[in-house]
């Protein structure tokens, strides 16, 4: 069964990481001191919290991605059957892509694609 193969690979991955971690823990040399437990920031002590609000640009791209990625979900079935459908499929996808392209152009015009 196909899905079983998937599970096998999943378990294999888990086994690889867990096993290697285990072996590493087993054979590695261990030492401890407070400095070693500090975050590494080129030798400077870290200032302020790390989990802060990030620049909105990142999220903006995430939102854009969300939209365009879902659009791929629609294009995939279309692409698969395109050969069988022909003209109608072509016209419809042109409409689809024109709207999508307009959306991209709009985002472009509005400066959503500009990294500030």
């Amino acid at each position: 069964m196909e899905s079983e193969a998937l599970i096998v690979f999943f378990l294999a991955g888990v086994a690889l990481v867990a096993g290697a971690n285990f072996i590493s823990n087993l054979i590695s040399h261990k030492s401890d001191n407070p400095q070693k437990r500090e975050p590494y920031e080129s030798g400077m002590p870290t200032i302020g919290p790390t989990w802060v609000q990030f620049k909105v640009g990142y999220y903006l791209y995430a939102i854009l991605f969300l939209i365009f990625d879902v659009e791929i979900a629609f294009l995939v079935p279309w692409a698969v059957v395109f050969k069988d459908l022909g003209t109608v499929a072509f016209i419809e996808i042109i409409i689809f892509l024109v709207i999508l392209g307009l959306g991209l152009a709009y985002a472009w015009r509005k400066g959503a694609l500009k990294w500030q």
Binding site: Y59, A62, I63, L66, I67, D69, V70, A73, F74, P77
Partner: peptide
Amino acid sequence: IFIIAVAAAETALAIA
């Protein structure tokens, strides 16, 4: 499929 698409749009807007 359509639900997924719409949910994406919804999320995008809500996040914004």
